[in-house]
Amino acid sequence: MTRNSPQEQRTDAARRMLEAAKRLFAERGYDGVSIRDIAEAAEVSKANVFHHYASKWALYQAVMEHCAADFSALLAEQPRADQGTAQVLACYTAAHLRCLLEDPDAARLFTRQLIDQADGEGRALAENLVAQNYQQALARIQELQADGRLRGDTDPALLALLLGGVNMAIFQLRNVLPRLAEHDPLEDPDAFAEGIVKLLIDGILPRE
């Protein structure tokens, strides 16, 4: 029987702690979770948790930063040179939606912290991380505009908010969407993103 090395065991333990903490913080909020809860869910000792993280707050910070980094990595991917403007926007929109749907605990954690919690360190941390990712998305749109691939009077900030906001609405309504929409965005995020971008680019008024 092959045994994992001590380094691999430590890495696996740290991963389990992050995943357990993310799920519990998303379900109960920061104040509703103890280090004991996280240790039990991750199947490690409390001492092991404190070996990796100096405090519950340090673990919470690590969870939030890890979640934000996943989306940041998606935005950092370079589009293919042959992709048109609509394809670039649709690809990022679909990638963002998948990020929300594939890691609902992360999305719920940020939503809980930003909407449900009073002002404090946790909210400030969430706001800063969301702002960083928003600025990254905004910079992408501004690059398209600078290259002449978007009209000069397009508001890049509004476009970034629209695309991100639509995805957040889809995430929040994901459990009832099959009864609300003829075409369920959850079944094909790519087609949904393409449709949203086409609607933005073509508009809704009849062509003359």
Rank of each mutant, 00 (worst) to 15 (best):
M1I: 08
R3T: 14
N4C: 13
P6C: 08
P6V: 10
E8T: 12
Q9I: 10
Q9R: 15
R10I: 12
D12C: 05
A13F: 04
M17Q: 11
E19G: 11
R23L: 07
F25L: 13
E27G: 02
Y30N: 04
D31T: 07
G32W: 06
S34C: 02
I35R: 10
R36F: 05
R36N: 07
I38D: 03
A39R: 03
E40T: 15
A41P: 01
A42P: 00
A42S: 05
A42K: 02
A42T: 00
E43N: 14
V44A: 05
S45P: 00
A47H: 02
F50C: 00
H52E: 09
H52R: 13
Y53N: 08
S55A: 08
K56S: 03
K56M: 00
A58G: 06
Y60D: 03
Y60P: 01
Q61V: 14
A62V: 05
M64A: 10
H66I: 02
C67M: 08
A68I: 06
A73K: 12
L75E: 05
L75H: 08
Q78E: 14
P79L: 14
A81R: 15
G84Q: 08
Q87V: 12
V88E: 08
L89V: 06
L89N: 02
A90L: 09
C91I: 11
C91R: 13
Y92C: 08
A94G: 05
A95R: 15
A95T: 12
P104Y: 14
D105H: 15
A107M: 12
F110D: 01
F110R: 07
D116M: 11
Q117W: 01
D119Q: 14
R123C: 02
A124F: 02
L125D: 02
E127L: 13
V130N: 07
Y134P: 03
Q135W: 00
Q136T: 15
A137F: 11
L138T: 01
R140K: 13
I141K: 03
A146D: 07
D147H: 15
G148N: 05
R149D: 02
T154G: 00
T154S: 06
D155H: 11
P156F: 09
A157E: 13
A157C: 06
L158I: 13
L158D: 08
L159I: 07
L161F: 11
L163M: 13
G164T: 02
N167S: 12
N167Y: 04
M168Y: 14
A169K: 13
I170W: 01
Q172A: 15
R174M: 06
V176H: 06
V176C: 04
P178E: 05
R179L: 09
H183D: 12
H183V: 15
D184T: 10
D184E: 00
P185K: 14
L186P: 03
L186D: 03
D188A: 13
A191P: 00
F192T: 10
F192C: 08
E194P: 00
G195P: 02
K198W: 10
L199W: 04
L199C: 10
L200F: 03
I201S: 06
I201R: 11
D202V: 01
P206F: 04
P206Q: 09
E208Y: 00
